[in-house]
Nucleic acid binder design. Structure first.
Lengths: 171, 171
DNA sequence: TGACATTCGTTAGGGGCCATACTATATGGC
DNA sequence: GCCATATAGTATGGCCCCTAACGAATGTCA
């Protein structure tokens, strides 16, 4: 019932639930809201990044690398840091390298590895993005009070552990 | 800072925020939780659907069509109902037709249109999925109390209108 | 040292989604 | 009837992400 992109579906899904099982519409509505809110956040964020020719994945790569701008990192550790597979990282780095934001060199010590480095253009770009990103996040944080954010986190944590619980039943 | 798939990033992003701007870590944490919870819900849901050879999109198509199992619908209205573009719907229908869950026929009245219908196999499948889906949703709803779901919805609504607000500033 | 396992980056192939642009058809205003 | 416009479905090509499998390099341990 989750993960719809359009509002008409709310009616449709409520309809389906009604036909099959009397489910609490408040929970259904909240799930819908969860999906839609997250989608809106994501879209807003990606629209912002796209002004700089970045996607979420590309941004995270640059951001991770910018923590140690002068050190080279391996694609593998980047993949872990960003939270994608190594295969996906290959694709991201292909794009970033093509756009001149990053370089890949061989590692003399461990010849399986590559050494990824930010180019000056890469550093310049991420330094231009991050402050604005920061401003956006601050504005975003103002949507709720501190207590409300804490409440939200607590509720989400309960949902997550609930999912985990019945995930284990399923399997 | 949202939309990370892995936990190490929390540290990383807090680090970034700290370096650039003192942001409320409670808000950052909540955003992270929002993204992670939604992802977990989505993954749990998709894992469930994949047992039946369905994806979120494919499931929604069948579910929408199952509201009127005997009526034919156009790809266009399906796209609107499911919330994807017409181009995406073409792809979804290609797959569903290939798997024998759906048929496409020409519309004699309006020769631009196609008429999509559930096959008996399609009906059988969605009828097998929906009750289990319903049970899952019910279990899911039990994660929080009714009041808590209402609270959650309210908080999310505030976030959404907040996003909308500064989305309008940006553009 | 040699055999085995593990790690690295990559390729190949898939799904999901999008925007864009094309063809065929329909429709409203003249 | 004719033309501009809108709509329907699709093809193409792109991005993001995945799994599976590969060759090369390295680690391990008898």
């Amino acid at each position: 019932m989750l993960f719809v992109r359009d509002f008409p579906d709310e009616a449709m899904l409520l309809d389906i639930s009604r036909r099959f099982n009397s489910m609490d519409p408040r929970a259904v509505r909240a799930c819908l809201a969860l999906g839609l809110t997250t989608r809106d956040m994501r879209e807003s964020f990606e629209r912002f990044l796209s002004q700089y020719g970045l996607s979420n994945g590309r941004f995270l790569v640059l951001a991770v690398m910018f923590r140690t701008p002068d050190e080279a990192v391996s694609p593998s550790s980047l993949a872990h840091g960003v939270g994608v597979t190594r295969a996906t990282m290959t694709g991201l780095l292909d794009g970033l390298e093509r756009d001149g934001l990053v370089t890949r060199a061989d590692d003399a010590e461990d010849r399986r590895k590559k050494l990824v480095r930010l180019t000056p253009q890469g550093q310049e770009l991420i330094q231009r993005v991050l402050p604005e990103h920061s401003r956006r996040t601050t504005r975003f944080a103002a949507c709720l009070t501190c207590e409300e954010w804490v409440t939200l986190t607590a509720l989400l944590a309960r949902i997550q552990s609930g999912i985990e619980a019945f995930e284990n039943i399923d399997k």
